[in-house]
Design a binder for these strands. Structure first.
Lengths: 189, 189
DNA sequence: AGAGTCATGTAAGCTGTTACATGATTCG
DNA sequence: CGAATCATGTAACAGCTTACATGACTCT
């Protein structure tokens, strides 16, 4: 049951439709999980059947109808249990790192290119997360917000996401630079 | 085909048995992938059947026999193709972050505890990776090694792993501290 | 004597990805 | 007028995890 708790945690701050959740899993929630829309629709259906969330139909005129979900008491209890259970360690799993691992034995050009693309993508997310954090804390500074804010969970996970992207960006740029320089000096392949 | 390329990349530096690879996927290789022994044995069998790796039986006396694998030319070509193809973006997927996301609505005690455990685990891996890097580059300094070393792929991915663990550790400690302080001040739950 | 290491798997089940399907409305 | 957005799914397949199984040797 991996996705279910991520969904429950995401629904804590209000009612969302599957469609809206899918968006969230692409931006804010992407700090700790990732899922495709199909998976979310399936999971929402299952969670509702189990009584961990409840949905209500919202009839719309100019757009298709939608179902909004919120976490039930049973759902909250489920989260509580989940939080108390041991977490499995987090690991990186990244195609690009596999390519870098092999970089001495294969063509470096596409790897360098992808590293630089990644760096740009990370840059964009850094901006996104920075803005999100700024908007979330409003006028108060971070220290103050974390001391007295009412809902700091999403802020904390976003901080993790931000740090991750910064780190990732730094490494991508450095690695690309190293590989470029080696191509220049010992004209290999 | 996600695991296969990770396996191929791991086999670039010599011959390994399934058992040895499983160890590697727990330490060095963990920088970019993770897999259980069963999965590795299965994947090695498949890769051999497809001719991307070749194995040879090594008869041992005091221990069970083992099969050592190395990458074939076809395997190297496969890696080459893989490197040229687009990578899917990397994302975090972490139980503990889900718990932190929900932390305002559930009991904080187990979350704090797990954050601190994670920090210790990260600490251990920081040590491990630092030593690995030091041993790999030998006498020369990092700059020099990256400029002229013969096999820098594993070094570069290890650098990423090190940065990740450092970052993770920092965030875990900071988050745990924030949650502790809040428990002290506004005695909630 | 028990725990840990070396060494390799099978089988079942759960999770996640890819491909396919539909259809109205709004924006450029 | 074509692309993007809103909105929700089904079906098939690929990948990963968990449980089970075996057996000798070495270290404490």
């Amino acid at each position: 049951m991996p996705l279910r708790h991520a969904v429950l945690a995401s629904l804590l701050d209000g009612e969302y439709s599957g469609y809206q959740l899918a968006k969230a899993f692409d931006v804010g929630v992407a700090n700790f999980w990732h899922a495709l829309p199909q998976q979310l629709y399936a999971e929402l259906t299952k969670l509702e059947k189990e009584g961990l969330i409840s949905g209500r139909e919202v009839v719309q005129e100019a757009r298709p109808n939608k179902r909004l979900f919120r976490v039930t008491d049973a759902g909250l209890a489920e989260l509580e249990n989940f939080a108390a259970a041991v977490s499995k360690p987090s690991f990186i799993r990244d195609d690009l790192l596999v390519k870098v691992q092999a970089v001495d034995r294969i063509g470096t050009a596409p790897v360098i290119e992808q590293l630089e693309e990644r760096a740009s993508a990370a840059e964009a997310r850094i901006e996104l997360f920075s803005n999100l954090l700024r908007r979330t804390r409003g006028d108060v500074d971070e220290e103050e917000f974390l001391r007295r804010g009412e809902r700091i969970g999403p802020y904390l996970t976003c901080l993790r996401g931000l740090a991750f992207e910064r780190d990732h960006r730094t490494w991508c740029l450095r690695t690309a630079a190293v590989l470029r320089e080696r191509r220049a000096t010992h004209a290999q392949r």
